[in-house]
Each structure stands twice: as C-alpha cells, then as structure tokens.
Nucleic acid binder design. Structure first.
Lengths: 187, 187
DNA sequence: CCATTGTTTGAATGACTGTTCAAAAAACAG
DNA sequence: CTGTTTTTTGAACAGTCATTCAAACAATGG
C-alpha cells in the first residue's frame, strides 16, 4: 500500500469530535485508532505525536469556526443581524443531547495550568475571534464602542456556551442574551 | 500510629487545589500523595477511591462557594451591592498568575461527555447557585424579573470566569459586566 | 523485473495508571 | 503486660498509557 488509504482531513474530523467530547488527557491513542480506523503506527507516521495531532485538530476547528463567522456576516444584511444569527446557532447547538460546548474553551480550561502550548494556541484563537468581531462592529459603531461591544459579546458567548449545558435552557438563553445585548436590536 | 496524623479537611484543601488546577484525569494518585503527604494506602483507607475523593473535594469547594455568597449578602447593604462585590471579587481572582477559573465549571466541562455522576453533581451545584441568586433577587424584584436577572447574572459570571483567562483583562471585565448588567446600579 | 520509495502493520517497550493488601506500628482497654 | 483496634506503610498487581520499530506490503520509476 504505497498510497495512503485515508484522507488527512477525514482523520482530523474524526479526531476533532473525539478530542472535543473527551478532552486531551481522556482521549487515548487506542480510542483514536478506533475512531479513525488507523493503527498506532500510521497515526505516528502521519502526525508526529498525540500533542501534534491535537494541535492540528484544534487548528482545523478554529479555522472552521472563524470561517463560519465570516460566512454568516457575508450572508446577512448587517452586522447586528449576523451576530444575532450566530447566537441563535449557539442556542440551537446547545439543544443537542451530546452537546459539548466549544472545543477552544474546553482546551483552554483543561490545559491552562501547565502553560501548555496547546493552551496558548486556544487562547490566541479566542482573542483572534474577539478581534474579528471588533472589526465587524467597527463598521457600525465607533472604534471605542466596537471594542466594548465585542468584549460584551465574547463574554456573553462564553456564558452561553456554559449555560447551554443545562437541560432545556434554550429559551432562557435566548431571552438572556437579548436582554444582555440590547444594542443587537438597533438598526 | 493508631491516631491518624492528618486532618481530613486539610487533605481535602490540598486535593482541591490539585484537582482544580489540573482536572480529574490529569491528577494522578502519585501527585495526590505528593500534595497531601499521605501514602496511597492511607488515601484509600480514608477515601474509598479517586472518584470519591474528587467528589468530596468538589462538594467542599461548592459548600465554600455558596457560603461565600451568603456571607457577602449578609455583609452588604442590599442585594445589588452584594452581587457587585461578588463580581468584583471574581475580577480580582482573575488577576492571579495561577488563575484557574471555577472548579465547578471546569468539572462540568471535563466530565460532561461521560454522563459522569461528578458532572451531574457539578451541574446541580451550579443550578443551585442560580436558585440562590434568584431568591436574593426576589427580595428586590418581582419573581419573574428575579428569575430573568439571575439567569443573566449566571451567564455573565460564566462569561467572566472564562474571559478572565485572558491576560490583563481585569479592567475590560469590570466595564463589561457593568454594561451588561445595568440594573446592578439601581437603588 | 528489479530497486526504490512510501505506507501499514501490530507486537513490544518502559513508564505510569488506580487499587489492593499483608505486614508493621502505634494507641487504647482490660 | 496482653489483646484488640486503628492507622500507616510500601511493595505488588494487573491494566493502560504514549510511543517505537523492524518487518511486510504495495506502488512507482527505470
């Protein structure tokens, strides 16, 4: 088999959901082999180590998340409407029975204490997302206001992603973020 | 040594900071022995298993957290002032270089996927805290409003606890929660 | 058809995991 | 002092961890 019988991206997608659900420490190579269909040797041949594999999976998740933001902003009439839809999507996700929040946030919390490079990466991506929101908001508001609103938005998103673990919280969350971010309904 | 040479509570306090920092999976019995000074045998003699030990540590943390809320409410003039101080305390905590958020939230995120009883416990405690805030708020507001404000407060607290990982975020967080919860400055 | 290159395999590695337990040690009661 | 009880000890257990590697395998280039 001189040609590899798998697609790097497919492997990563399988690995993302495993790591996302269980976290870094609780996901064993054995589980990874089961989730991907690859033998240990192949995994280490394609990805250098468990850490590198996780890093790449997380990077793919982050890229997809950021891409989803840009897409939503391109598809909606104005910035506020785009953000409202993004928040509505988060609420929708929280309804799933296998809901497991945000991969970046989970990674940040799990690996913070070790000053891990994976923590650094997750942290950086979250900051990056805030910056992206700031840029979009500065189309509608002053730079100062855009910055403040982006920080509020990130705080509310973080809050939602954790509040979403509570069963049957969807309606409450929707009411909550509308009350917390009244400026979303301007324009 | 027929008399035990340690205090159950001291052991728990040491164990809390270990589990709090590193999470359940990443904290080994070996590390626990190092943190507590107890040998494996003693730990299993006093606490039945790693899971039971974690459970008890988490329960102690939760009790302390809830106690702190009641104390703050008793020490301040009114409910809104008490909540403002609690939020200010959270901001203060986030300044620490070894900041590691909230033990209950971290546990909920780490152990959610397994339907773990530890997850159930953490989840229940967080719900309980919301209920406590609802009760305090209903002294000042209608039941309906108190419920809505408590949900907002919990969402903002969750948000703060994650936003706090960001370096030098203290000022931003303070401005953010004042903007998100304008009703805190009533009365 | 051979040599080369790249891929897959899966057993083996040594370290570490949570847990157990028989023996030792220390306090108490009689 | 003796017998009982409680606690401590630390080696030992079976299992799992991440990782390695030589061998088998398959495809390409010449």
């Amino acid at each position: 088999m001189a040609k590899k019988n798998y697609q790097r991206e497919d492997v990563l997608d399988n690995v993302i959901s495993l790591f996302w659900q269980q976290g870094y420490a609780a996901s064993s190579i054995q589980q990874i082999t089961k989730a991907t269909g690859l033998k240990p040797g192949s995994i280490y041949h394609e990805f250098e180590s468990k850490e590198k594999l996780f890093q790449e999976a997380l990077a793919r998740y982050a890229t997809a998340s950021i891409g989803a933001i840009h897409k939503k902003m391109a598809d909606t009439e104005n910035v506020n409407e785009g953000i409202k839809q993004i928040l509505a999507d988060l609420v929708e996700q929280s309804k799933a029975c296998d809901y497991c929040g945000c991969f970046l946030i989970k990674t940040q919390l799990e690996l913070a204490s070790q000053g891990n490079s994976l923590y650094q990466f997750a942290s950086m991506q979250l900051s990056n997302i805030e910056k992206i929101y700031t840029e979009y908001l500065s189309r509608v508001y002053s730079d100062e206001l855009a910055k403040a609103y982006a920080a509020q938005l990130m705080t509310v998103i973080f809050g939602i992603r954790i509040y979403g673990y509570q069963a049957d919280s969807a309606n409450t969350i929707t009411q909550t973020f509308n009350a917390l971010l009244p400026w979303l309904n301007e324009h």
